[in-house]
Design a protein around this nucleic acid. Sequence first.
DNA 1: TTGTAATAGTTGTTTTTGTAACTAACAAGG
DNA 2: CCTTGTTAGTTACAAAAACAACTATTACAA
Lengths: 149, 149
Amino acid sequence: MPTDNFELEKFLPYLLNQAAEASSLAFERSYKAKYGMLRTEWRVLFHLGLYGSMTASEIGGRAKMHKTKISRAVQRLTERRMVTRERDIDDRRVEHLTLTSKGRAAYTDLRSIAERYEAALVADLSADETRALRIALGKLAEVKPAVFT
Amino acid sequence: MPTDNFELEKFLPYLLNQAAEASSLAFERSYKAKYGMLRTEWRVLFHLGLYGSMTASEIGGRAKMHKTKISRAVQRLTERRMVTRERDIDDRRVEHLTLTSKGRAAYTDLRSIAERYEAALVADLSADETRALRIALGKLAEVKPAVFT
DNA sequence: TTGTAATAGTTGTTTTTGTAACTAACAAGG
DNA sequence: CCTTGTTAGTTACAAAAACAACTATTACAA
């Protein structure tokens, strides 16, 4: 019984948020409960697990996370002995971040959870839907549209 | 140069978040700059604009927003004279929320921005992609998967 | 009735996030 | 060398979100 013809449920920013939130929930519980991690932290962890040693800026560029988020995530991961930091010899502003064995163990564990979770999510979708979804999401993630007035 | 074969860029919770954030940005600037609204507030505004008078619980159920978020959003919208509250006669716990003319004007304006913005977002996508995207997102928004360990 | 549970919504407190300002180190032209 | 500008990362403070405890009201059964 809407009073006009706008469809909120199809408005992409709204729909994307709902889907993102719902689909993040179960995974969030895993890394939160098992490792006391925040969203920012598992992202940093995964980047280091996947790409090996990285600097904060590199992670920021790739994950599109603001540097303050990364700074705090790294601080917490360091306190928990999951990440070590090492100053660059040539440029002492730069820090190289690396997973400790504890961090790598957490990454390996969470990655396997992520893989199984992904499979469960995709199980609801047809192959075509999944393919189109990934392509469309990839495009939308890059979009940087002008402001509307 | 990943060190293993997990694809973070295809992991749905991650990808969805990126897409949701990127695609919300421009619209967020509109309602923030023009009306000083928060995400929670435009959502409440749109529900009232679309469905007419609603209670906080009804909005919560439909938008999957926690009741404290709604309570505070309604409070701010009321302070700005965009929403009025009226106690239910039969059940005095319940409040019926309605847009004022000022609220309705803001809704109409923002809805038209939303429509144009949606068109700009979808312009990057093929018709098939768009259709599959909406269907897939709709399913994912409903998904409530078991916790993985 | 009256006692217990449920529901609508609010308030208080703690976490997280966002934003801006900051320090430290490097770069590059004069 | 200096000055000016840039980059990497941190810190401080303000805004927003999450979570839990609360009030007020209704429902319902003993």
